[in-house]
Design a protein around this nucleic acid. Structure first.
Lengths: 220, 220
DNA sequence: TATAAAAGTTAGACTTACCTAACAAATATA
DNA sequence: TATATTTGTTAGGTAAGTCTAACTTTTATA
């Protein structure tokens, strides 16, 4: 049985490992920063996680999740994303409101609850941000890796996921009527600053920044 | 902001006050027993709750919730019963499984979540056990006070709520196909031991004990 | 490669929620 | 009403998770 806090550390390590797939190990400070605690605190917890065989690490070395640690982390991520989907689909929460509440809901302990919730939602593969929802067996559905900024002028694609999940970005997307599945046509790419002219659905073309184009995953 | 534990103490005090409406105050040992902690622990917490103006009490005296304490307690009860309803109605949990998970869910902090959940469930007035669900303003719907044991032979009534929410009793009810709303006709009352012959819906009459009849609230 | 900077650890302290053991007050009963 | 029992409190201790301050190791750079 893992504590609320231990679960958060595992989830953080899992997320950090996703950020850099070739280098899945994390550092103490990195982890502490991610969780909003001091490095000393992270060191303490690391010892406990190692004791429980959830991470491998040695003093001054890098941190890596063990199989068990990864499995537990994925289970939490699964719950998080299922709850996000529930809040968005069933309770009309907006894109940018779901995360905070799901942070709490992900710690509810009940295997039955998770599985029933998944069934109730119709076994969704992706959450409201387009992130893949791990299956009960730990499998994670394949996910789009192409950024909007990689699409050439004249080509069409569909929004698959958001890379940046900040409130500011999500609210901007909402304002532009962009959601998962929206069709985007790249009209023109401005070499000078990397900005794009895109057509959103059947709207009039409009310009978006390079930063914007690097924050959206698409399926071409 | 109340801690998980503080919330549980408030809920316990509220429940205890319901148990004896003429004497809504509780004792330290009573409270400790209800929460499964030692009296010394309860005393400690009491001091904290008093500090926060959630209870009135003086050394060696009785404990009473303040208006603020009551309001907070009711909010938690509201969440608990809404979640129970969700689990039962939407996720197919059985009568006796909902409580344990709702004990966790009731501590999720999000005003929007509670209200949206209530709306999603169609503003239910009673939870799966027939207990009233407090409204957002703290109002608690009126509830049946008549026990099945008070019904006279020949009279018909409807199951309104369970007084005993133990797993054993709930599972027994399920076996008898009794649920909230089921019509019961009292065929005969045996003076010797208080047992009853009742007709459940359109089933053949059968006998139930006095203990049983004192564990069900009905509407006549 | 020597040293400065960055990264990580240790020691000691605090808070919350719990405990046990010893004590004090209130209540019940002989 | 005196005493025994029940009820409640205090004191001191523990574990989890956090902190700051001082220290050590690793890495980067002059």
């Amino acid at each position: 049985m893992l504590s609320y806090t231990e679960e958060n550390y595992l989830k953080a390590l899992l997320k950090l490992s996703f950020q850099n797939e070739e280098r899945p190990e994390a550092g103490t400070n990195e982890m502490a920063a991610y969780l909003g605690v001091k490095p000393a605190t992270a060191t303490d917890m690391l010892k406990k996680l190692k004791e429980k065989d959830l991470v491998t690490y040695k003093k001054y070395g890098k941190i890596l999740l063990t199989e068990s640690g990864k499995k537990n982390g994925i289970a939490i991520l699964r719950k998080h994303r299922l709850w996000e989907t529930f809040l968005y689909e069933k309770l009309d929460f907006s894109w940018d409101e779901v995360h905070e509440v799901a942070e709490q809901l992900e710690h509810i302990q009940s295997a039955k609850l998770v599985d029933k919730l998944e069934e109730f939602l119709g076994f969704p593969e992706f959450d409201p941000h387009g992130d893949p929802i791990p299956k009960a067996n730990g499998e994670i559905p394949a996910t789009a890796k192409t950024l909007l900024s990689e699409i050439k002028a004249g080509e069409t694609c569909k929004v698959a996921a958001v890379k940046d999940t900040s409130t500011l970005f999500l609210q901007y997307l909402e304002k532009l009527h962009i959601t998962i599945g929206t069709t985007l046509k790249v009209i023109e790419v401005i070499a000078f600053d990397g900005s794009l002219s895109i057509q959103i659905g059947s709207q009039e073309p409009r310009s978006v920044s390079m930063k914007f184009a690097e924050s959206l995953f698409v399926q071409s």
